[in-house]
Amino acid sequence: MVTFVRVAELGSFSAAATNLGMTPSAVSRQVSRLERNLKIQLIQRTTRQLRLTEAGIEAFARCSDLVCAAQATMQVAQLHSLAPQGCLRLSAPKAFARRVMHPLILDFLASHAEVDVQLVVTDRDVDPIKDGIDLVVRLTRSPPEGLAARALCPVETILCATPQYLAQTGPIEHPRDLVSRSCLFLGENPSDHRWRFRRDNESVDVAVNGRYAVNHTEMRLGGVLAHFGVGCLPDFVARPAMQQGAIVRVLPDWQLQSAYSGHAYVLYPPNRFLPPKCRVLIDYLVEGIASPGERVRHASPTLLSATA
Results as ranks from 00 to 15, higher is better:
V121A: 10
V121T: 13
V121H: 08
T122L: 12
T122P: 04
T122M: 12
D123L: 06
D123S: 06
R124M: 15
R124Y: 15
R124L: 14
R124K: 13
R124Q: 14
D125K: 11
V126F: 02
V126H: 04
V126N: 03
D127E: 08
D127I: 04
P128G: 06
P128N: 04
I129P: 02
I129M: 02
K130C: 07
K130N: 08
K130E: 10
D131Y: 05
G132I: 09
I133E: 02
I133H: 02
I133N: 00
V136G: 00
V136P: 01
V137G: 02
V137C: 09
R138S: 01
R138H: 00
L139M: 07
L139R: 01
T140L: 04
T140R: 02
T140C: 02
R141G: 15
R141M: 11
S142Q: 08
P143I: 03
P143D: 07
P143C: 06
P144S: 05
P144L: 01
E145R: 10
E145Y: 10
E145T: 11
E145L: 10
L147P: 02
A149S: 11
A149F: 11
R150W: 15
L152Q: 05
L152P: 03
C153Q: 14
C153A: 12
C153S: 15
P154W: 13
V155N: 04
V155F: 03
V155C: 07
V155S: 04
E156K: 11
E156Q: 13
E156A: 15
E156M: 13
T157E: 14
T157S: 11
T157N: 06
L159V: 08
L159A: 08
L159K: 02
C160K: 01
C160P: 00
C160R: 03
A161W: 00
T162P: 00
T162S: 07
Y165K: 03
Y165H: 05
Y165I: 06
L166T: 09
A167F: 07
Q168W: 09
T169P: 02
T169S: 10
G170R: 09
G170E: 13
G170M: 15
G170K: 09
